[in-house]
Design a protein around this nucleic acid. Structure first.
Length: 322
DNA sequence: AAGCTCGTCAACCGCTGTAGG
DNA sequence: TCCTACAGCGGTTGACGAGCT
């Protein structure tokens, strides 16, 4: 398709004059016929580029240059868990935000997650060192609780979540209700298989296998082990204090109607079933679908290298396993 | 003060889906 | 049914600024 060399195509940052021309076109013709902009000689931009400029910068009511609010962050997190990386779809739930905004926001978080995982693995437990935290470190840790879910949870491994919410695309439980979040302070070593995403708390105490389902070795994944202990070991008291502030944050991660979304801002209109209990959800048509999210299904979709940088903790056998 | 690291943002690229001929 | 053009989407990249060492 792209056989012939495109001549006279301008790329790069848009000038104010170009924006003006584009706006005029949209006023006249509406947000369509993008390719005609070039064919008419109005701009030396591809239709694609024009559309993108309109959608991301020139459209009315965009929240350009303002950071994501806490509410917006929560919505993105929830919807990403439900829909996967369907940024355009997610953006429709966020008035004034574009798919590009959401995408950028999410990838920043992913980067931070990667860094957190690396640094927490590379520099564990140095409580006395570094009594001062840099601002940046603090902000990184600020993301910690919410980045735990940052992996894709589209549990169908054979591909793409469809445009409809799929049963398997339910949000990860610790972001669905506080009941599940309370699984965090488990007393013992928690291996992935015991991170059962069920509302039934009993599941959290499932027998733990000797094998790590990811590595097929006996190496447990420290980050997922007894998180309380890990937190104590890895983070300084300041950071812990900071993390402690997330308790109330988690508390509001209950059913959507409890989120108070839109407080003081534009109301965030949510489509039906964002916060369904694990085990069932509603299809787009409002039809309830029962399903069970198995741990395997969930962890299948963790990036395989997600924990590459994490070294196993010293053997905690005795205190840990049961 | 300079260099470095990181986060944010804008824009491009390639792929896919769809409508029309 | 096939082909083509276009629209839309998601991934990626590069520029830039802010903060830190």
């Amino acid at each position: 398709m792209e056989g012939k060399k495109e001549e006279g195509i301008r790329k790069g940052p848009w000038k104010a004059e170009e924006d003006e021309v584009l706006l005029k076109h949209v006023k006249k013709c509406g947000p369509r016929d993008w390719s005609s902009i070039r064919s008419k000689g109005l701009l030396q931009r591809t239709g694609k580029s024009c559309r993108l400029r309109w959608v991301n910068k020139l459209r009315p009511n965009l929240k350009n240059g303002c950071k994501f609010s806490v509410e917006e962050e929560r919505v993105v997190i929830e919807l990403q868990a439900q829909f996967g990386n369907k940024w355009a779809r997610i953006a429709t739930y966020l008035p004034g935000r574009t798919d590009n905004d959401v995408k950028n926001f999410w990838s920043s978080r992913q980067k931070r997650l990667a860094r957190i995982l690396q640094t927490s693995a590379a520099a564990p437990a140095t409580p006395s060192s570094k009594s001062h935290k840099t601002k940046r470190e603090v902000s990184v840790f600020h993301e910690l609780p919410t980045t735990m879910e940052a992996t894709k949870f589209n549990c169908s491994s054979e591909g793409e979540p469809s445009s409809q919410p799929q049963p398997c695309l339910s949000p990860p439980p610790y972001f669905r209700n506080s009941e599940i979040i309370k699984m965090v302070p488990l007393p013992d070593i928690v291996k992935p298989k015991s991170l059962c995403f069920e509302t039934n708390p009993v599941q959290h105490e499932l027998p733990i296998t000797d094998k790590d389902p990811w590595t097929d070795s006996n190496t447990a994944i420290p980050f997922l082990q007894n998180p309380q202990t890990q937190t104590d070991q890895i983070f300084s008291s300041e950071t812990q204090e900071f993390l402690a502030r997330f308790d109330p944050y988690f508390d509001v991660l209950g059913p959507l109607d409890a989120l108070g979304l839109g407080n003081g801002g534009e109301p965030l209109v949510m489509e039906p079933p964002l916060f369904e209990p694990v085990g069932s959800c509603l299809s787009c048509e409002g039809e309830r679908i029962d399903h069970t999210m198995t741990p395997d299904c969930v962890f299948d979709d963790f990036p395989t290298d997600m924990f590459d940088q994490i070294e196993p903790l010293p053997n905690t056998s005795g205190s840990g396993q049961h």
